[in-house]
Design a protein around this nucleic acid. Structure first.
Lengths: 198, 198
DNA sequence: TTACGATACGGAGCACTGTTCCGCTTTGTC
DNA sequence: GACAAAGCGGAACAGTGCTCCGTATCGTAA
């Protein structure tokens, strides 16, 4: 599953016009439904919204993860691309890392249940996990390495682990005023810093 | 729901012998099933294991959370009680906090999907969230306050938020060798420490 | 323009799960 | 032993994921 690129402007020659149209309709419908019902909204709901049958969804997006990835691809891409620019523009690598992490957290917390889905170990979301992490971990690693090289943080932390940790901190009941993922992510990043030499 | 105490040695006078027996059988069956299939194992599976009908489960434990709470009550209790003793015995409040958090993390990671369930915002697990947190947050707060008073960590962190953060870090695919919740929890606690004065 | 094969569509149907509800059984008591 | 209350079991209903195949639509070649 999902080695192919089921969405976007594919170089696919052999595709019928109505199929292409449906794919777009589906993407739009899914995006709308995700906002109101979360990323684990019933497939039927998305199908109804798009005015197509369920078979059509499964044909275009074999797993739920494929659909979610297609919907958020642009945003993930943007986040990934922001990494190097932040590194170039920010005052220090650590500052860049912080800003980049902010971007990532913003992305996650504004999507109902996305973080949950990404870390969940069931429900056909495994591919989601893979895609997001494959794309973003290298970017994070670059920022991390730069900060280590600059002596701002201790070495030894793996980008994969950090990303998962941040993702995990974004999981949970939405909008509980007592819980703000950002504060905890900030704590995590503080924990990364090397002890101030006295 | 669940203000009552459906499990354990209740002072209930008016209970039939078979009902009591079933309650124990159910608890044992649930504990066994949770180990192999996680805390969101199908109700039918637990019922079958215990050799009772589904109605019996729902009568004794109206929500899934009630059952989970009943199964783990002792362990949560033990964890809660360990707080004050650690504070009394450890070298410093921060050390006590660390050891206590270790206890809590151990508890969570050894239960398939417990952390997930606890933070999930659906599936009838809300009560679970409440029970665990109601019981443990005060303990955590005590340790936190002591560490603040001792000048070991910065003030301003809420126990509730910290507990949720720790819980969240324990969520996810079990036994991915690249992800160890303990390392991230450690990072979180480091982030708590006040900057070393230079 | 028409005819025809390939492509895509729709949704009925199956499997699985949570949850309720009520006729039947067991228990405790008189 | 008889009877009411307490408890039990599991059929039945509802919501969901996912598959499968008869039918409709598209693109093309005649």
């Amino acid at each position: 599953m999902s080695t192919g690129n089921p969405s976007e402007e594919a170089p696919a020659r052999t595709k019928r016009a109505d199929a292409l149209r449906n794919q777009q309709t589906l993407l739009a419908a899914a995006a709308a439904v995700f906002v109101t019902s979360g990323v684990d909204a019933p497939i039927r709901e998305i199908a109804a919204r798009a005015g197509v049958g369920m078979g059509t969804i499964y044909r275009h997006f074999p797993t739920r993860a494929d659909l979610v990835v297609a919907v958020y691809r642009h945003q993930v891409e943007a986040c990934a691309e922001a990494g190097p620019s932040l590194l170039a523009d920010a005052d220090s690598p650590l500052a860049a890392l912080r800003e980049w992490v902010d971007l990532f957290v913003d992305f996650l917390v504004t999507k109902h249940g996305l973080a949950n889905a990404m870390q969940s170990d069931s429900g056909g979301f495994e591919a989601l996990h893979s895609y997001f992490l494959d794309r973003l971990v290298p970017v994070c690693a670059q920022l991390l390495d730069a900060a280590v090289d600059a002596g701002e943080i201790r070495p030894g932390t793996q980008a994969y682990e950090l990303m998962r940790g941040i993702g995990n901190l974004c999981v949970g009941r939405d909008s509980d005023p007592r819980y703000d993922p950002r504060r905890l992510v900030d704590l995590l990043l503080r924990g990364l810093r090397r002890p101030q030499a006295s």
